[in-house]
């Protein structure tokens, strides 16, 4: 053996490119979003409304197809205050992510809460979407900038505790 430093690691940069397919349901939903509408889909088997739609009701394992508009208002069913940076997220710290059960939907989705003190966010709080200016709408979930409190009375936990 020589007295040279051992090779402990080598770096091999790799680059791969992928083309992702949203599928028909997400396409329909994205097109609606570009018109300022939140369009979910109904499971033909259990009649539950999915937003955003993925094309399937995972509970039943069947394709969803019939569209239904849901409100851009809803209830915070649970939430977290994020105080640590993440590589893929370009938001000022801290920020609040919440499970929001939109009026008319049967499954909560992840949304941002802003225009609210962090210690004022609570389970059961009513929130509404704040949209980007219409001129900036695209085929993108980010047309909604965030959700903010509506000031309506809180919804009792009992009413949505199955939708955390």
């Amino acid at each position: 053996m020589s007295d040279k430093e051992p090779v402990k690691s080598i770096i091999t940069p790799t680059r791969t490119e992928y083309t992702y397919t949203p599928g028909p349901s997400a396409q329909r939903s994205l097109r609606a979003l570009a018109r300022g509408k939140l369009v979910g889909e109904i499971c033909p088997s259990c009649n539950q409304v999915y937003y955003p739609p993925s094309g399937a009701c995972a509970r039943c394992g069947v394709a969803t197809r019939d569209e239904v508009e849901v409100a851009d208002k809803g209830t915070v069913t649970t939430y977290a205050i994020v105080r640590v940076p993440s590589e893929n997220i370009d938001l000022e710290l801290p920020y609040c992510t919440a499970h929001i059960l939109l009026d008319g939907a049967d499954i909560p989705f992840f949304g941002l809460i802003q225009e609210c003190e962090w210690d004022a966010v609570r389970i059961g709080m009513r929130v509404e979407a704040v949209w980007k200016p219409e001129s900036e709408w695209g085929l993108n979930a980010e047309n909604i900038r965030y959700f903010r409190p509506t000031g309506e009375p809180d919804v009792p936990f009992e009413q949505f505790k199955e939708h955390l």
């Binding site: 949203p22 649970t78 993440s86 893929n88 997220i89 992510t97 389970i123 979930a141 980010e142």
Partner: peptide
């Protein structure tokens, strides 16, 4: 954290995913 073009990325890793579930447990 590979960004899928048409999906919103706001969930900060496993902690960001599980924190709301823990809060749900605390509430229940």
């Amino acid at each position: 954290s590979i960004k899928i073009p048409f999906r919103q990325a706001i969930v900060a890793g496993a902690g960001g995913y599980f924190a709301p579930l823990i809060r749900g447990y605390m509430q229940r």
